[in-house]
Design a protein around this nucleic acid. Sequence first.
DNA 1: ATTCCTGCAAAATGTTTGCAGTCAG
DNA 2: CTGACTGCAAACATTTTGCAGGAAT
Lengths: 153, 153
Amino acid sequence: MESRIERIKKQLHSSSYKLTPQREATVRVLLEREEDHLSAEDVYLLVKEKAPEIGLATVYRTLELLTELKIVDKINFGDGVSRYDLRKEGAAHFHHHLVCIECGSVAEIEDDLLEDVEQIVERDFNFKIKDHRLTFHGICYRCQEKEQKEDEQ
Amino acid sequence: MESRIERIKKQLHSSSYKLTPQREATVRVLLEREEDHLSAEDVYLLVKEKAPEIGLATVYRTLELLTELKIVDKINFGDGVSRYDLRKEGAAHFHHHLVCIECGSVAEIEDDLLEDVEQIVERDFNFKIKDHRLTFHGICYRCQEKEQKEDEQ
DNA sequence: ATTCCTGCAAAATGTTTGCAGTCAG
DNA sequence: CTGACTGCAAACATTTTGCAGGAAT
């Protein structure tokens, strides 16, 4: 069984890039924190724990490279910070996000909910879709419960 | 018939803000360029043509205010720049965008295509949706035609 | 030797803030 | 007079770049 990291290594090689120790450390952090949506700074601090000599610029360059190769997705929730998110393997499309406007938590949805919508857009607007980004802003179930309890009192 | 600007004025007043000349000039630019997706800098330069004494900070403060009052939407297409887009009057939801990865053009879709999807999300994920952002990345019809012609040669 | 990659520092970019002055009620 | 608003400049945060040195082939 080939590991995820080895497959990423091959992806890099097939575009004539190397998996240097710094790049590997960065990828490992992203793998370990797959559920999160880390900023470049976050990644930098976590990588620094394993490889203290790494520079922030290298992290940026690595994340840019991984974005180019579609290994990670660069997203932006409206605060001024870019966040980086590993693509699920084999996922043709970007996954969707549920951002809670109360607590700021971010959940992911893997389901491809947009097939019908994309058909409509491609047909009606004659637009050839390559990718999409869908984010819902609202209130997560935890904050809903919290509000209910407060109302009861 | 009440003008759009007057209605915006009332919206400001009802939250105890004034429609100062600078704010009015800013809103007028947004009205005139409703189809575009202007950055703060873009807005600043256009406002400066009418009111050269205005400062960039004022434009930022005005755009922030208008965003707060949901008169404009602040959007981000992944380059590091925030763009500002007048909300259609009465639109409960953010409209959608088609971003062309060839020429960078941005088209808007007013149709609410997400009603079904939102029902699924609210039910399956127990998430109370307040707003959404949907952007498709792909190739617009103009660039598709261009590519076809190149292929024919 | 050549090419790619790195760390550091400096620069660039986009946005926010502090402050003194202005304006309207 | 008071509070809201403004322009300017400085500060700030994030990201990118230039460069000299290093590692791999």
